[in-house]
């Protein structure tokens, strides 16, 4: 069974068609890049998968179920902007996540905090933007989920942290879980991806494996993306 499946999925905001007849499926054990220019529908798609939005038409299934209480236990979601309670410390957040999610591995989260030099006692509001993003990512990656939905996980962090994040994704790899990374920093993530989905104006333009693109086009996915989406 597919970890994430969309069938003729549509989403309209008033007159704006954000997603138009989107169909694809992501099998377990895949690391997939959701790639598209600004405003192409990436975040809408991810929010639909989390049940934060409801589709205008079509169907979206996580492990065969419609988004809801049951799928929230399976999906670990990194929002496109940090939304952590400012008054809490990293420590308190770890406890909160342990309470909320049965699959949260607190020891793993602590190890990652230490590795990235983040003081667990520090409050979120005292942290820099990059550090907040790191904390959020640590929380998300410390769950043992079936599907990780990472909306722009590497946008705001420095290159060394970027490497650490990608390394964490590889270390976490589990043949029964899938990871979806939405980003426009393709060159940085290309090596860790199995497949890419190109999305533009709310439509799927291409779904292919990274190595098929390189083999057929003789260029990197990054270069191919620039060609497809030339302004």
């Amino acid at each position: 069974m597919a970890t994430w499946e969309c069938k003729s999925l549509c989403k309209r905001y008033g007159k704006v068609q954000a997603l138009d007849n989107v169909s694809f499926s992501i099998e377990p054990g895949r690391v997939v890049g959701l790639l598209g220019p600004n405003g192409s529908g990436k975040t809408t798609l991810i929010k639909l998968a989390n049940g934060l939005l409801t589709p205008t038409g079509g169907e979206l299934l996580i492990n065969g179920q419609k988004p809801g209480k049951a799928t929230r236990a399976l999906v670990s979601y990194l929002p496109d902007r940090p939304c952590l309670p400012e008054w809490m410390s990293a420590e308190k957040l770890l406890n909160m996540f342990s309470d909320f999610y049965a699959d949260f591995q607190q020891d793993k989260a602590r190890e990652m905090l230490e590795k990235l030099g983040i003081d667990p006692k520090q409050k979120i509001k005292q942290m820099s933007k990059g550090t907040r993003e790191k904390v959020q990512l640590i929380l998300v990656m410390s769950r043992k989920a079936e599907l990780y939905l990472l909306d722009e996980p590497i946008g705001g962090v420095d290159p060394a942290t970027r490497d650490y994040i990608l390394e964490t994704i590889i270390r976490n790899y589990n043949p029964s879980a899938s990871v979806v990374i939405s980003t426009h920093l393709i060159a940085d993530v290309e090596q860790v991806l199995d497949d890419v989905i190109f999305i533009n104006h709310g439509q799927i333009v291409l779904k292919s494996s990274v190595d098929d693109i390189r083999e057929q086009q003789g260029k990197s996915v990054d270069a191919y993306f620039r060609e497809v989406f030339r302004c």
Binding site: G29, L193, V210
Partner: peptide
């Protein structure tokens, strides 16, 4: 090996 090379384990 995948981590060392920084690539996807499937690759």
């Amino acid at each position: 090996l995948a981590m060392d090379a920084g690539v996807n384990p499937n690759t």
